[in-house]
């Protein structure tokens, strides 16, 4: 532009000079308009590039997880720990308070598997249980074999446990996840049924030792004999019930188990281990 200006110098000097100024101004105008359009586009729409190539944006990252729950060793440094879990089914009942008094005397925390109706009848027992560090596990609403297992699916079973779970949560604010299937999980609970239980967020315990206490009405000694004859494993989950004969046998049961070198533990969701007849790791 400037060169072209120079060529015209000399001929009709004044007019060409005017022309030159005019052209320069026009040129500047176009440049200004160009910048203006670009800037307007940029400020209105972001950073739209003249060549149409895309803006690069960066996605932010997520956390991965490689850690798992740590398993509790049964043996270490030459030591073996013998642990007994006292578990009481079918409660709460009118014996629950006396039983909890007894457990308190021995500084033992137990694991309960309770029925919905009984929780509604003895709500204070459920509250006390949680306050004193026992585990308020679930044992369905009805305990009805046909209803729970004979409907052709897991629907009734899950619904009953969810209802029972809601009762405990309403009473105590604690939402238990450990359940025990009435009559045990075998043979009535199959593969896909178990998957449904796990998918519903539950863990399921059967037992390793059956005290048969339910049938020894008025014979607390027979319960003790049964336990004496079957207490062998380093970890025993002992099936008992919230009943009169069990309450009567309890002091001697505790004494015997302790004499064999066991410590008592309560179910701890943070130290869960598999204890079902199917050895199903999902539960």
């Amino acid at each position: 532009m400037v060169d072209r200006g120079r060529v015209t110098v000399g001929k009709r000097r004044r007019r060409s000079r005017k022309k030159f100024i005019g052209r320069t101004i026009l040129f500047l105008l176009f440049v200004a308009i160009g910048i203006g359009i670009y800037a307007a586009g940029k400020s209105l729409l972001g950073t739209v590039s003249a060549s149409g190539s895309d803006l690069i944006v960066t996605e932010v990252a997520t956390f991965a997880s490689a850690a798992k729950e740590k398993e509790i060793p049964k043996e270490f440094n030459g030591m073996t720990r013998k642990v007994a879990y006292l578990t009481f089914d079918d409660g709460p009942s009118k014996y629950s308070n006396d039983m909890m008094d007894l457990l308190k005397q021995h500084d033992i925390k137990a694991t309960y598997f309770m029925l919905g109706d009984n929780m509604n009848t003895y709500p204070d027992a459920v509250k006390r249980m949680v306050e004193e560090g026992h585990y308020p596990g679930l044992h369905s609403m009805t305990h009805d074999f046909n209803k729970l297992y004979k409907s052709g699916g897991s629907g009734n079973f899950i619904k009953e446990f969810q209802e029972a779970q809601g009762i405990v949560e309403n009473l105590t604010g604690f939402k238990p996840t450990l359940i025990r299937a009435p009559y045990g999980s075998a043979p009535q609970i199959g593969e896909s049924f178990r998957k449904d239980i796990a998918d519903a967020g539950f863990k399921m315990w059967d037992w390793t030792l059956d005290s048969l206490d339910w049938k020894f009405i008025g014979q607390p000694n027979r319960i003790l004999e049964q336990i004496k004859g079957t207490l062998t494993a380093d970890v025993e989950v002992i099936l008992l019930h919230d009943r009169q004969q069990t309450l009567e046998a309890l002091p001697s049961i505790i004494e015997y188990i302790q004499s064999k070198g066991y410590e008592f533990e309560v179910y701890d969701p943070n130290a869960h281990f598999v204890c079902n007849f199917h050895h199903d790791k999902r539960l």
């Binding site: 950073t47 739209v48 803006l55 690069i56 944006v57 960066t58 996605e59």
Partner: peptide
């Protein structure tokens, strides 16, 4: 919604988006 044409990276680009204008 703002009418911006963008290309995503997985977070391995060190460049600021502004410097990427054509």
């Amino acid at each position: 919604g703002a009418g911006l044409q963008v290309t995503k990276t997985e977070g391995n680009q060190d460049d600021n988006a502004e410097q990427q204008e054509g």
